[in-house]
Write a protein that binds this DNA or RNA. Sequence first.
DNA 1: TCCTAAATGCGAATGATTATCATTTACACC
DNA 2: GGTGTAAATGATAATCATTCGCATTTAGGA
Lengths: 131, 131
Amino acid sequence: MEATKHFRKRDAILNCLRSTDVHPSAEWIHEQLKAEHSDISLATVYRNLARFKERGDIVSLGTVNGVERFDGNTNPHVHFICTSCSGVLDLHGVAVPQELNERVSGTGQVNSCQLTFTGKCNQCIKQEETA
Amino acid sequence: MEATKHFRKRDAILNCLRSTDVHPSAEWIHEQLKAEHSDISLATVYRNLARFKERGDIVSLGTVNGVERFDGNTNPHVHFICTSCSGVLDLHGVAVPQELNERVSGTGQVNSCQLTFTGKCNQCIKQEETA
DNA sequence: TCCTAAATGCGAATGATTATCATTTACACC
DNA sequence: GGTGTAAATGATAATCATTCGCATTTAGGA
C-alpha cells in the first residue's frame, strides 16, 4: 500500500532532504519534487521545512547568499561553504571538541553548536586554473 | 581638526560597529547614528557595511531571525546566540583548535571559520524564572 | 454520509536588502 | 575664486526570499 495522499508531499519533502548531500534551499527541494508532484506548492515546502525544523527533524545551516539552507542529517558535523559556488560540503572526520561545550555552559544553556569553514572548494579552484 | 564631511558618516558607521558588543544589524546602527547624523540614510549604512565586509574591516555573523548581524572585531572568536532574545555574545577564552584548520585544507582553501553556540542565555533564563 | 481538523495551492503581503538616480561633497587643477 | 571629475549620499523604487490568508481538499472517525 502507498502512503496516504494527505502526507505524501510532507514525506516527500523530508525524503528529498535526507537523500541528498547538497544541503539544499527550499526552492531547490521544490524543483526536485515537481517531477513526482507536479502540483506541489512552494509554500508547502516552506511550511513543512519550518515544521521539521521546529521538531528537530532537520537542521538549518543559516543563509548562504541570502537563502536558507537545510540539512537532513541532524548528527552534529562540520561544514565547508564555498564562497565561489555557494556549495556546502560535509567535513567528515572533523568535530568540535566536547570540552568546548562545557566551557560555554557558563554563558547559558547550550542547545546546539555549529562550526563552519568558509573558502574556495577544490572543484572551484580547479575550474579557475583551467579557465 | 575634524574629519572631512565626506567621510564622516562612513567613519561613524565603522566606529559605531567597533564600539559596541551587541553585534548589531544595519538598522540598529542606523538608529544609533541618527542622534549625531540626523539625515543619515539607511541605504548608506547598508552600502558601507557591504564595503567594509568586502575589505575585511568587519565580519558578518550571518543572519539571526532573518536579519544580518555584524561584528567589528575581526579577531577570530566564538559566539553564543540566544534564541530567546536574539542576542549575540562573545565567548572569550574559547577557541577553535588550530589543528582543525589543517584538517580541513584537503577540501579547499579555507578563508575563515566560524563557531557558534546556540541556546538560551543566562539573562533570559533568569527572567523566565522570575516571570 | 457527515463532521472536524489538518494539509495544501494559490496569490497577496511582508520585510530585509539592493539598485537607481539625482544631488552633494572632496579634491586636484587652472 | 571657478571648473571638472569621481566618490558618497539620500530618497525612493525595485527585488526577492519568505510568510500569511483563505478557500479547497483530504483523512479519519462518529
